[in-house]
Design a protein around this nucleic acid. Structure first.
Lengths: 331, 331
DNA sequence: ATGAAAGCGCTAACAG
DNA sequence: CTGTTAGCGCTTTCAT
């Protein structure tokens, strides 16, 4: 591979001039510029980013750390991030940590080892102390999930308010025996907020609390189906289910149907996230949509502020959400 | 941030010794080693990967380039890749190029600019010339999709054979008027092979060819639904549909149902890829599954061979697939 | 076992 | 407008 020095030698200029042609072409006379560019093309020269980054102590790389890439709405968030990033000449790379905290720390070390300029966390394994220590030294923003005990910047939606809307919707349909179905494999703030809204709304209307507490379990359609079967056996009076995600709602609905219960007549079901399937599923699923693309845009905007050393006014940015009423609650 | 030099100064050793403590601890006497490690801990020192990589001309980073991360089976492939990568001390990062060739080239420049040691392409925008030029100089492997005109290494399944199995299955059910439904937004080898199998099998049984050619279009459920509506209008005798992906199959099935056609009695539908949803959809979808995790494992194994300069015996590695028969063809 | 020194490829003063 | 030079942080000979 050609280096700058080789280009310089053949073009009969110094390396500084080659560097200028690359980074500030106008500071070089047209003919030397042309000569250098010709040699660059001939040698197929490509600047070594490691050398450049080492020198400039910046890489123009943003790392997005997430649980696993198969979560459908991550995709749109990342598009939002990239959209802003590309404008400002940053590249976006993604890494999975599968909820593994050690692996998460390993990737976050990319910051300490100067391989990336900033990290956007769509993952949430870190303790408040870790986050605070990290954000004190490096540009880090949390998106969607966040640690409520940390001051680290976060872009998210109002999960409590959104969940209240779902609960009010169910109650407005005359549903009084509402169960709560969660299946997060670790404690996450969104589930806490959803559950808080569940409890508060039931108390507000003095309705029975069927689900007393959340539990840690694995995500997924089949788990949700099993749990709902159990639920229906233990609480035959259930007439609605608040599922923490659309995929769980799918499982819950299929369990109801398998038990000869009509959805939504006998049991209404709501989900969360508005994934593509929620519109395709039969029945289609009432759910909350966050504007993922905007979440991504905002996250990268805040990231740029951090990189540029600007002081943030709001550490928590709450973006709007939207309720979609579909067949799973209303035919 | 602490540098090696600061550690060296405080520990009263040379930078060389600090480096040794990090990379080859046994070559340092126990007490100096201990002293250095204490300072490292105290200063919270983290080696700068840019300096190290620049010096060693290797980064231990593998880039996976893909169309968009929301394709469900990409996730499993990446897990396979990571599985092998982590054993050999490589990290895996992911970038999306959304089928944009220019963006793809930009990311592939990470190789030329020495930011990554290898690239695994789950994307397929490159011409044979580009690929050949690239593979001549850098470790590159294609997974799933590949350019048939290039010698670049590829790990994939036998799309032709798999598609023949689907076709034979439909025909064994007595279906004779089979349409082909594709919706790839660019020419890809998998679609070519599927279509070739479609045509060959129809010819083998002297059945009518309803779909004469493939067309470039955008992926997706709704597109598939629209196209199927059209198809049913133009060819009322259709009794089966070969959809190039499970998501398309969903759209096709819903279009049939909306036209009062029973699936599979009136129209049988097959998909491809065995995404999670194909089992949940009503009716569940007959499809082909490739073992994505294994595809990932193999891809990374080949990548390591390339990095280590080993000569490959097979440039195209074909892994087994599996036919899943479900309700969309057989109740 | 340890240190001195060269150099990976680049950018940015500084000088002219 | 261009060249010289220092140095980003690290690893690795080559001495001792």
């Amino acid at each position: 591979m050609a280096t700058m020095e080789q280009v310089a030698k053949i073009a009969n200029v110094s390396v500084a001039t080659v560097s200028r042609v690359l980074n500030n072409p106008n500071s070089v006379s047209p003919d030397t510029r042309q000569r250098v560019q010709d040699v660059i093309k001939k040698l197929n020269y490509e600047p070594n980013l490691l050398g450049r980054s080492l020198r400039k102590t910046e890489t123009n790389l943003i790392l997005v750390l997430l649980h696993a890439i198969d979560n459908p709405f991550f995709s749109k968030i990342i598009r939002g991030i990239e959209n802003i990033a590309h404008i400002y000449n940053y590249d976006v790379i993604v890494a999975n940590n599968y909820g593994d905290r050690q692996l998460g720390e390993h990737y976050v070390d990319f910051l300490r080892s100067r391989l990336v300029d900033g990290v956007i966390l769509l993952s949430s394994e870190f303790t408040a102390e870790e986050l605070d220590r990290l954000t004190a030294n490096y540009p880090v923003v949390q998106t969607i999930e966040y640690n409520p005990d940390s001051n680290a910047p976060a872009i998210t939606i109002d999960y409590y308010q959104a969940s209240c809307e779902l609960m009010e919707h169910l109650i407005s349909l005359g549903k009084h025996n509402i169960a709560f179905l969660n299946a997060n494999d670790r404690p996450i703030i969104s589930t806490d907020e959803k559950f808080r809204a569940y409890i508060d709304t039931l108390n507000k209307y003095q309705l029975p609390i069927i689900t007393k507490s959340t539990e840690i379990a694995t995500f997924g359609y089949f788990t949700a189906k099993d749990k709902t079967n159990e639920l229906l056996k233990n609480h035959p009076t259930i007439d609605a289910i608040f599922a923490c995600s659309d995929m769980l709602a799918c499982g819950a609905i299929d369990a109801c149907l398998a038990n000869q219960l009509k959805v939504p007549e006998d049991v209404a079901v709501v989900g969360f996230d508005n994934i593509a399937y929620s519109e395709i599923f039969k029945p289609s699923i009432t759910t909350i949509s966050h504007n993922s693309f905007n979440l991504g845009l905002k996250s990268m905007e805040v990231m740029l502020q951090l990189i540029n050393g600007e002081k943030l006014t709001n550490h928590h940015l709450i973006l709007p959400h939207k309720l979609y009423i579909r067949q799973s609650t209303k035919q």
